[in-house]
Design a protein around this nucleic acid. Structure first.
Lengths: 208, 208, 208, 208
DNA sequence: TATGAATGAGCATTCATTCAT
DNA sequence: AATGAATGAATGCTCATTCAT
């Protein structure tokens, strides 16, 4: 009894599946709408209620049967992964956009700031980062690797520009990011997040 | 759902909870010994297995019936709180011991370091700190307040000595502490924890 | 997360747990009564409805919560095993009683007859035999081994007396037994069972 | 629960079901091809995986949608019946071929042997025979009746030739057949099957 | 007609909590 | 007071069957 394949490999497509090339057949429309609805609902529900929420609840809020959710995401874990995927994809895009900025240090710190701002109170985004930040040593692949690489590029540039301590590694950043997000998971306080962010950024610049 | 009263309210007694007089009946001795055994076991079990472990397991390892555990801690939550209580108590003592050190900045940073070192791999301690670091705005009382105050004193001294940025508040520290602990929950890597600690401390010293 | 141990190792006691020696504490009485009730109900339900019946149903018919069933038999499989256990134990006793008979051939054939008679329409007994008869090559242990040995002794004697073909092995008998029971699972026809039994017995005596 | 009518009733047509005339519209050809493909795949899948395999799997391996399978076989049960039908049909043909043999006893025993040989490891064939051997008293019709009759003829001849006990009835044979098949379902051991077969055949010849 | 998406009842199992002994 | 048995809601997941496209 091998695990059944999901409707579509999830590591190949993100939330920007609008393009879809010339792909999908007619029927696909229905299914894709549902898949997206599930993803939307799950993202929201995970963000507000945490990952422990039962799949049933996701199904209910999405207005569908459990079976439908399971058809699209054969495992709760896979649903979570898919949600995480979206987040990471969006962040990767932002990171790439920032690579062109004049001041590499500023770009890097802006990115951290962006993540913190977006992540406040969003348990799902936190979970997303948890997948990179937790268990630093597990080799990544797919979107998670892409995500790490995106951060890595920003970090490298910032380090070469002398804006960030040289002993810091990408995984340190993801770990810290995760770390901070976790805090914000429980504290929806913009003052706090700003101060923490500032402490972290200062710390990353290195001892004066 | 009317919560039953525990054998002894634990968050209501202040830090002077060491001995509520020698009041107790003889049976009390037996009961207290049991309570302490439960606490010991729970502390250990929570630390190694995490908070999700069933109460049954705690009871088993403590060599008593579930009923006994529930008699002392009417709720799993309350047992957890009690464990957290112990951790905080110990840390408070250490913090007080450090207050006398010559260099207040060093004292403060040493305390942070101590917590990080003790917290590595200790899921219960992490949870303990999570209870202070999470929901910064909830008014604390009892041990949690004491704990916060202990940190606060160290922080104040360090700030007066100019070793820590002045805009930082105690709650920021507990939040950060929690944050870092969470990371360590997933990454048992001493190098990582040292680097993060170093970043945080540098950041707390302030922009150069 | 290791499997929890059942209330009592089931391979050590059978349905004749009435003796129980001087064992059980007071509380045990309650539990034992429940355990036996579950076993009774399960035996009956499995016999009439088959093994596919949900545990819920067993619990309902026994007038208890599911949890109680699971407390005594941590797994559906273990409940089934326990039921099987009882059957085998009873049969073993009968087999031993027959060993003393004058005509070893008759004893052996009587035993087969006994099983067939008892097993007609009893899906649980069939299941019991299935555990010995199916997968001949899996090494047995505990009660199943005892059961096989009991048959083996009867068979040996019968073979030495020249009443049964010498090329037949114990496992052949258990396989045949299982085989016949299965048939009787679907056909509650005494004439049929007698004829099949007669064919099998004749066949076992060997070519004339 | 009103059962929907299948595309074509399968147990109502006699053995002359090979061609109901060349009636069918052009589309019928397509449909029949599909039906046959499903049947082929199901036969194979059931044989190797057992009847518990989900319909989805059958559909997948047949390279069509579930809907198509359900169009042809409105119920899983009916698909199983259809598979059984094919098996029986083939066996009937073999049985008829054997009717002409010189030694009617030999023919009969050869047939039994044939079934046993073909049935080893074929869970679907076993199920097929189970449908005849189980519930002996249910009046048969269609293919099942034909199958029984085929065996009946072989049996009759063998009995008239004195090679088989006279008290044996056709239904006994199907029951025994089922019985043996069941054993083989769990024990893929040619030695065992040969010995069992030999015991049964000897038994059928009658007491010496 | 073919497709495969949607459905939801059903199942084994876990675990916090209550309660009889 | 201690015990541990009983409880049952909750959860992740499967699969036969229906139905919209």
């Amino acid at each position: 009894m091998p695990k059944k394949e999901p409707l579509c490999a999830q590591d190949n497509r993100g939330s920007n599946s609008i393009d879809a090339g010339t792909a999908g057949k007619s029927l696909r429309a229905d299914a894709r709408r549902n898949r997206e609805r599930i993803l939307d609902v799950a993202t929201k529900v995970f963000a507000t209620e945490g990952l422990e929420i039962p799949i049933d609840e996701v199904a209910n809020r999405a207005g569908m049967g459990i079976g439908t959710v399971y058809r699209h995401f054969p495992t709760k874990e896979e649903l979570i992964e898919a949600v995480v995927f979206s987040f990471k994809q969006r962040l990767i895009e932002k990171a790439r956009g920032m690579l062109g900025q004049d001041d590499p240090g500023q770009a890097f710190f802006n990115f951290l700031s962006l993540i913190v701002r977006e992540g406040r109170g969003n348990k799902a985004l936190i979970a997303a980062l948890a997948r990179s930040g937790a268990d630093i040593h597990r080799p990544l692949s797919g979107i998670s690797l892409d995500f790490q690489n995106a951060i890595g590029e920003l970090l490298n540039c910032a380090q070469q520009a002398g804006s960030v301590r040289n002993d810091i590694q990408v995984t340190d950043i993801t770990a810290i990011l995760f770390s901070v997000m976790r805090t914000l998971e429980y504290n929806d306080d913009s003052g706090l997040s700003e101060r923490i962010l500032s402490v972290v950024c200062d710390g990353l610049r290195g001892r004066c």
